[in-house]
């Protein structure tokens, strides 16, 4: 594989709903093994950017390149093949409610591999145990808690050992301990499987603990203000908005008290 090329590159991307432009001129690159955070205030288009990257929404202009190959201007067939190498964790888990957790994880394995039923079951149980859900494989999503649903969604996203994992707000709705465990798991996956991880996140502790690359979307100027290591952005970025966001608004608060 072309390991020298950046894993994901976004070029001149503009996203819009009809005539309403949300973000324009987005440019950033993600290297293999990066944990990349998409950050910004509410309503700036973080989730929309992720939807474009995983192929759910067409960009207005611009292109996303995976391993140097264009994703949107290529054929639909190639896009489908690429999608199989992604794993996605949706905000509320988005588990299929009519299937048990093990069945949820098994769907992709059943459709895209030649494995036998017992092998698929073994793999499903292993993926569920990775996210700490051993013993819950025959439960339905409505019978477990929100945090567990989220972890089960992660197990499903990992079913095919994806090259790239996309997370939409993984720690939202989790208690601090479970949020920490999830962060550890993300780091572990990157280290052991060399998975590239793209996260929509605005939990600062989690961003600083895991992420080594990021893009900051601004709702006011409707474009990216900064891209790079979030710790560096917090300390050295020229934009006040970015530093203030990454310091939990304390810069503005200090200015008021002075």
């Amino acid at each position: 594989m072309s390991a020298d090329k950046p894993h994901i590159r976004v070029e001149n991307l503009t996203m819009a709903y009809g005539d309403f432009v949300i973000q324009r001129n987005l440019n950033f690159t993600i290297q293999r093994g990066d944990i990349f955070t998409i950050m910004g205030g509410s309503g700036c288009g973080k989730s929309t950017l992720m939807k474009i990257m995983i192929g759910l929404k067409t960009p207005a202009t611009g292109e996303v390149f995976y391993n140097g190959e264009p994703f949107w201007s290529g054929s639909a067939e190639r896009r489908e093949r690429y999608k199989r190498r992604f794993g996605t964790l949706f905000q509320a888990g988005a588990l299929w409610s009519s299937m048990t957790l093990a069945e949820n994880v098994s769907v992709a394995l059943d459709q895209y591999t030649e494995l036998s039923e017992s092998e698929i079951r073994d793999i499903a149980l292993y993926k569920l145990s990775l996210v700490g859900l051993a013993g819950f494989e025959d439960y339905y999503p409505s019978e477990i808690s929100g945090g567990m649903r989220k972890r089960a969604g992660l197990a499903r996203a990992m079913a095919l050992d994806p090259e790239i994992l996309f997370f939409d707000e993984p720690s939202a709705g989790l208690d601090p301990i479970n949020a920490k465990l999830l962060d550890d798991l993300i780091l572990e996956l990157r280290d052991t499987l060399e998975t590239t991880v793209v996260v929509v996140n605005h939990e600062l502790p989690s961003i600083f603990a895991t992420s080594n690359n990021s893009v900051f979307l601004d709702a006011e100027t409707k474009t990216q203000l900064a891209t790079g290591d979030p710790k560096r952005l917090r300390d050295h970025d020229p934009h006040h908005t970015v530093r203030n966001f990454l310091a939990r608004g304390t810069i503005d608060a200090e200015a008021k008290t002075l």
Partner: peptide, 18 residues
């Protein structure tokens, strides 16, 4: 080894399995 450790670190809760 790391993944195997991760997969076995949480024991299934008593009585959870169906």
């Amino acid at each position: 080894r790391q993944l195997m450790r991760l997969a076995t670190v949480t024991k299934p809760p008593q009585g959870a399995a169906r």
